[in-house]
């Protein structure tokens, strides 16, 4: 896959949809494309994160450690971004992401990520939007869960 194809892919990702193509090209060029075999981990819960991944192909399980052993909470696939929380907030990885099939991902190092965010405010806004949406959804889920527990 060449750079131009990667740029096309990136444009379909909501996080980058408002960013001009030439910047996406720079992002693609300066990030590393990695192939994970099925069973390899993109990130491991509890580790300190040093990169975020944009999944270009394949699917991966997002798992968290519970008292009953590891539990898959969701699946991610093409166009999903994983691992950005740990590098944004400097906290350990909140979940393990394990490739189910062969996964191709763009690895954006912490440095690169921050540089991109400071360089291109549109991206920061996009990330805020995504995080806010996530937060709203999680809050909704929580209140429903609390409602259920209370009722």
């Amino acid at each position: 896959m060449s750079l131009n194809e990667e740029v096309e892919l990136l444009r379909n990702i909501p996080l980058f949809k408002n960013i001009e193509p030439s910047k996406l090209k720079l992002l693609a060029f300066t990030s590393e494309r990695l192939v994970f075999q099925a069973g390899q981990d993109l990130c491991v819960e509890g580790d300190m994160g040093d990169a975020a991944y944009i999944i270009i192909g394949g699917t991966a399980d997002v798992m968290i450690q519970t008292d009953d052993g590891p539990k898959t909470v969701t699946q991610v696939g093409q166009n999903d971004v994983v691992g950005e929380i740990a590098i944004l907030c400097d906290v350990p990885r909140t979940a393990t992401v394990r490739a189910v099939s062969e996964v191709t991902a763009l690895r954006i190092s912490k440095d690169l990520f921050f540089r991109m965010v400071t360089e291109f405010p549109q991206m920061a806004v996009e990330i805020m939007r995504k995080l806010a949406t996530d937060l709203q959804r999680t809050t909704g889920q929580l209140s429903r869960a609390l409602g259920r527990a209370g009722g």
């Binding site: 750079l3 030439s22 090209k25 720079l26 060029f29 540089r115």
Partner: peptide, 20 residues
């Protein structure tokens, strides 16, 4: 052409030059 397209907007001391 690609390099100019990618890097022309960056300040001259930007780390990307050295790295990429």
């Amino acid at each position: 052409a690609t390099m100019v397209e990618l890097f022309a907007d960056l300040p001259a001391d930007h780390e990307f030059f050295q790295q990429f």
